[in-house]
Design a protein around this nucleic acid. Structure first.
Lengths: 220, 220
DNA sequence: GTATGCGATAACGTATACATTAAAGAATGC
DNA sequence: GCATTCTTTAATGTATACGTTATCGCATAC
């Protein structure tokens, strides 16, 4: 069924290796080397690398190999700025769309899961539910390009989250924020949905930036 | 110096052909066909197509060829939504950066050129200066990723502008808006810079969407 | 006339070959 | 010892070859 091409496999495998840290940020890898590691020729590797390059995950530099893009604290700040604006827009559009309660079930479920996870002190489960919340929020905004951009940005910071998840303060305010955004969307209150999510994201950004400064974070 | 590879040439040539309309939106083109037309093998064509696909200019579909992505009225609205948010953020950040008058020279020059062009009724020159203004504005926002995204979105609507430029109302309000944004940035007034540019963009979006509706625009 | 199945065609995905050329190291001159 | 040039190496960019497989036309059945 799934027309699994070698390029697809290469993209998946490389993403996996990047996210798990098997390929460390800043490291270089020759096409031949990756081809051998994944058991295919250079052709699909090159094509996969081109795709990942377009998503900002790697950089291809002639004769230096494929570099796993490092993400600096400044990059982090830049990315969160973009996420803040685009997700807030999505929240606004979602509120304007006039969704019914059933339309918002997935969003509600994500919020509930976050509560549960927080109660059980399961930060991984919380992060997972948080992901689902944000992804669904963006989906409800009904702007395919916006969704794409957000997901690409999100991938770029994913690695940092693994690092910071356990040193950051417990995300207790977060759930209240999510609930407020949810209510605004359900009520069709676009301005509130936008503004609430905007300050939610800005707070997250400021927290993260401060955290990275404090921990002498110089790139990942 | 100019490390001109065939992939680069293919990307340039294809972009050119897309923007001039030589490759019409919605049309399909086999890799072999494009390779022959550009005098190279399929390999660089494929790589170029992958890049352009990542930028939303084409879609590669197995056995159907490389399709020049059509842009619907809805796409237009979506893109303008994104541009509105991101450019406004850039304006805000630019205002916060505390640029000097010399730093803002390029921006000022673009505004002046737009005035001149408008006086001479030269819409192409106006559009060109408008491009420069927006590009410089975004650059001043100092967020490389944001700049990239904006430039990709801008490319996607470029074709539509060629069509709509001469049927839309004269952009007289536009220059006043640009001047206001400029002043806010020079004054370091972030909120005004953001809000002014935001409503400027929203007005442009609404105008364009209305125009497309009116002219039964169903895709380009 | 419509639908179904089969075979031919050709477009794609990928492996491979190879010329080019940047980078690293060796050799030379000072 | 340091700089410079030459040589070597090998990674890349690209052409090419080829197996796989979707698609189209045609034949056949209804």
């Amino acid at each position: 069924m799934g027309a699994m091409t070698n390029v697809d496999r290469a993209v998946s495998a490389l993403r996996q290796m990047i996210f798990t840290g098997e390929l460390t940020p800043g490291s270089d890898h020759l096409e031949t080397e990756l081809a051998e590691k994944l058991g295919m020729s250079r052709t699909p590797i090159r094509e996969a690398a081109l795709m990942l390059q377009a998503q900002g995950l790697v950089e291809m530099r002639p004769r230096r190999g494929i570099r796993i893009s490092p993400v600096s604290a400044q990059d982090m700040a830049d990315i969160y700025d973009i996420l803040t604006e685009l997700e807030s827009l999505a929240a606004k559009r979602a509120a304007q769309a006039g969704y019914s309660a059933t339309d918002l079930e997935t969003l509600a479920a994500a919020i509930a899961d976050m509560d549960t996870a927080l109660g059980a002190d399961d930060l991984r489960a919380w992060a997972d539910a948080d992901d689902r919340f944000h992804r669904e929020l963006v989906r409800l905004g009904r702007n395919a390009r916006l969704s794409m951009i957000v997901s690409v940005m999100r991938d770029q910071v994913r690695r940092a989250r693994a690092t910071t998840l356990f040193i950051r303060p417990r995300p207790s305010q977060s759930n209240a924020d999510h609930r407020a955004v949810f209510r605004a969307i359900a009520d069709g209150d676009a301005a509130t949905a936008h503004d609430t999510h905007h300050s939610h994201r800005r707070a997250a950004r400021d927290m993260l930036v401060a955290l990275l400064e404090k921990h002498q974070f110089h790139g990942l």
